[in-house]
Amino acid sequence: MLKIKDLRVSVEDTEILKGVNLEIKPGEVHAIMGPNGSGKSTLGFVLAGKDDYEVTSGSIEYMGQDLLELDPDERAREGIFLGFQYPVEIPGVSNSNFLKMIINSIRKARGQEELDALQMLKLLKEKIAALSMDVSMLKRSLNDGFSGGEKKRNEILQMAVLEPKLAVLDETDSGLDIDALKVVSDGVNSMRSSDRGFLVITHYQRLLNYIVPDYVHVLIDGKIVKSGDKSLALELEERGYDWIKPEGSTVPA
């Protein structure tokens, strides 16, 4: 469903991704690991279409179309979901209102009927319970004053209601204690299916104990330098990134 070919990306004239190749098929869970500053988050932002990330060469094909041609909202409606490392706070916009808007906007795009208030509430309550969240979060402003854990759960909640085809989760584990990590991982695992792909971006192997990947890629200095199965993650945990660093790389481990 996703084919990234020789992707090069610059931000403000600094090249961050220096030729990334990656293919994800439906039903697969891929993990991208790498030290800080290696370009992991950039990959997520480029897939979601953020401004300021300039693709200088290469291509991204998604479900048979050129992803780079689409605006961020079009990509979202085509089924790409990015779980943010730092979810944005929007004061004055209630969480429930926001959830209603995004759900109906995506349903509309898929040709599904929009949900009315009752159906919406039912859906939200169900998903909220599954994530051990408090219903009162619906009334609060979007992410405004949320704790780190609450924000991450809110991201997973949005993923759950939007039912994306490809979910990119950027450092979803950062700032979570072990209980929250389990809840979040359960949320993700319950969504694993044969027609949905996942790209899990993480710095630590810990998350991959809970969300077991099919493939693990190591991104260093803007390139995927090694790929393997879940055992690669364990090896990285044990040995760090140094042994795998390409010759001449300047990136600190």
């Binding site: 961020p72 909202d73 979202a76 943010f84 944005v88 995004i102 906007s105 795009a109 939007l162």
Partner: peptide, 11 residues
């Protein structure tokens, strides 16, 4: 904020 909302599918 804008990017976050559009990433969730809003115009």
């Amino acid at each position: 904020q804008l990017f976050y909302c559009t990433q969730r599918g809003l115009s």
